[in-house]
Computed example of a mutant assay.
Amino acid sequence: MTRLRLAADVGGTNTRLGLARDGVLLADTVQSFRNEAFSGFTAVLDQYLQKAASGGVAEVAIAIAGPVTGATARLTNRDWHFDAAALSRHLDGAPVHLLNDLAALGQACPHLGAECLDTVIAPADDAGGDGQRLVAGIGTGFNLSPVLHAGGRVQCLNVEYGHVSLPLDVAEHLRSRIGDAAAEFRTVEHLFSGRGYAAVRAQFADDDAGTQAFQGFYAELLSLLARNLVLAFLPAQGIYFAGAVARSLLASPARQVFAEAFRQPFALDTGIEAPVYVILDDAAALKGCAAVTVNR
């Protein structure tokens, strides 16, 4: 009998749970829970398993919206802590693997079909298979997950790119439009996050014309950042944007502004290019948890 895996995607507001076999998420097992109704993750876990898998599971993979340090983790926006060893004991010895939510999306990327993605910049040819990808999460905060898919195995690197200083070309373009107010945006996350999005929006008129002008300008900023990321990480298999800010902006008319700016040739005459996608699948992190290799 194939081993049954529990996949979990734990955010600050909601927790999604599902079961997987042979690396594939079983879609009809996915359920979502409001975190505020529970004292902690184990309470959510127990309620789900009582009905979905009363016989237990063989292994567990949990994506967490917060820092993961080895076998421990914590949520950024809720006082929930995770200890893989304690969770394993709670589950009768089932091995537990903790990973950051962006790393889970990175694990999912090679397995996401066209129906799960919005293609902003199409690949020049078939960009599937092995190679380098990059997940960029722009929501409450900002971070990246560099992804290497080689020999049938997906590996994701840990980075803290949101705290990197804002690239010079992005900072100069921002200052050209909002002047001295640009000084408050010191890091990538200061600008590319929910609070950064709102702060830049406040520099434009509060009407439809102001909204359109702001979205176009912010799309230019995002394209500059994305071009820096292409050079830094060479994600020939694609940049995958995730998060509410990225999804909203690239679904607006500003999408065309982003695309035109992103397609401009690089100074390096090397033919560097990368397709760009937006992850639309709310179960993508669960699919990554289903696919990731768990140490038993």
Rank of each mutant, 00 (worst) to 15 (best):
A251V: 02
D126A: 14
F217S: 01
E189M: 10
N100Q: 09
Q31I: 00
Q47I: 05
L157N: 00
A53I: 03
V245L: 04
S32E: 15
G128N: 12
A259I: 10
S165H: 10
A291W: 11
H173K: 14
H173M: 13
L157F: 10
L225I: 08
L98W: 08
V135P: 07
D269P: 02
V24P: 13
H90C: 02
Q264F: 02
R247A: 12
R34E: 12
A246R: 03
A150M: 11
T211G: 11
V57K: 14
V147Q: 03
Y218S: 07
G23T: 12
D79I: 02
D206F: 02
A114C: 11
A58H: 15
G11V: 05
G179H: 14
Q47S: 13
T293K: 14
A127G: 09
F233G: 04
R177H: 11
V30Q: 04
Q31E: 14
I64N: 01
F241N: 06
P67V: 01
G216M: 07
G11W: 09
A86E: 12
F192S: 05
R78E: 01
Q203M: 14
A246K: 03
I178T: 06
L99V: 07
D118L: 15
V24W: 11
D79R: 10
A73I: 01
I62F: 01
A236R: 15
